[in-house]
Computed example of a mutant assay.
Amino acid sequence: MNRRTRITALTAALLITAGAAGSAAASGGDPASARPGEREAAALTGTAELYRPAGDDITFSFDAHLAAKDNMDPQAATGTFRFSHYKNGQGGYAVAKVDCLTTGGKVAVVTGVVTETDVDGFRNKRVGISVHDDGKRDRLGYSWITEEVYEELPPCMSAAPFEKVKAGTGDFKVLPWHMDYPTE
């Protein structure tokens, strides 16, 4: 095969691949959807470290999804989220099972019950986190802002996203929820 033919074949293959990827992104296709090409109802994914001038190592990670079939039931959301806070070799972590997810524009609120932790105060408690995915410097908030984990935090409740993530670490992705409104 001559050089021109190889270049043309390679270019065509790249264009086909890019076109397929672009079509999937434009249609909102997601592997977690029940039907091919069907967009999830809402999602929150990604990881970031919080900025703290004292050098605390604080990380939040999310993998939360609301399937298209559950569009009108944010408490049917699935997935997990994880957070940790360490400083000078002390601290802890927690993993929560998602029990509610709502999103609006680039803001998400997720709650979950802590299923794994080395901090007794979080064990089996519902916690809530909010995220603002601004594309430049994401923000985050959490329900235990007062350092108290509440006994009966309702699903999908958290503080506003008041914390800044450390520059260069925020890769949160919020898929906006499109609620179906009654027509009558």
Rank of each mutant, 00 (worst) to 15 (best):
G22R: 01
K69N: 05
I7F: 10
A9W: 15
E151L: 14
P161G: 08
E40Y: 07
H85R: 15
G104F: 02
D118H: 07
N71I: 02
F162K: 11
E148A: 05
Y93F: 15
T47K: 04
E49M: 15
P161A: 15
A13I: 13
M179Q: 12
K87M: 04
L66D: 02
C156A: 11
E151V: 08
G28H: 06
R82C: 03
L175E: 01
M179N: 07
C156I: 06
R4K: 15
G19W: 02
I7C: 08
E151K: 10
A32R: 15
D171P: 06
D118Y: 08
K69T: 09
I58M: 12
W144P: 00
T5W: 12
N124R: 15
A41G: 03
Q75E: 14
D180H: 14
Y142M: 14
D57Q: 13
A167C: 05
R39Y: 07
R52H: 09
I16G: 04
S61G: 06
M72P: 01
V113W: 04
V114H: 03
A64H: 04
A9M: 15
G55V: 02
L153T: 06
P182V: 11
F83S: 14
F83D: 14
T102P: 01
F60N: 03
A43P: 00
K69A: 13
R3V: 10
G168V: 11
R126P: 05
R6V: 07
W177K: 04
F60K: 01
D99V: 12
G170E: 02
R52Y: 08
A18E: 00
E147F: 11
T183N: 13
I7N: 10
T78W: 04
D134T: 06
G170S: 02
R123I: 05
E152H: 05
G128V: 06
A48G: 11
T80V: 05
I7G: 05
P36R: 06
T111K: 13
A13S: 13
Y150W: 01
A43F: 00
D30K: 02
H178C: 00
R4Q: 15
A41P: 01
E152V: 01
N71L: 03
E147Y: 12
A26H: 01
D133Y: 07
V165D: 11
P176F: 03
V109T: 04
T102K: 10
L140S: 08
D56M: 03
A18C: 04
V131F: 00
E38C: 04
L14W: 06
A13W: 07
K164W: 06
R126I: 09
A25E: 04
F162E: 11
L50E: 10
A43I: 00
P53R: 02
A167P: 02
D118W: 07
T45P: 01
A76V: 10
T80P: 00
F81P: 04
Q90R: 08
P155I: 05
A20C: 08
F162P: 03
R6N: 05
P161K: 09
G168H: 10
T117E: 13
T17S: 10
T47Q: 08
M1E: 08
K166P: 01
D99R: 12
T102I: 12
T17G: 08
N88A: 12
I58Y: 07
G28S: 09
P53Q: 05
S27T: 09
G105Y: 09
G28K: 03
A25K: 06
K87N: 06
E38G: 06
T111D: 14
G141A: 14
M1R: 09
P176Y: 03
S61V: 01
T117S: 15
S143T: 00
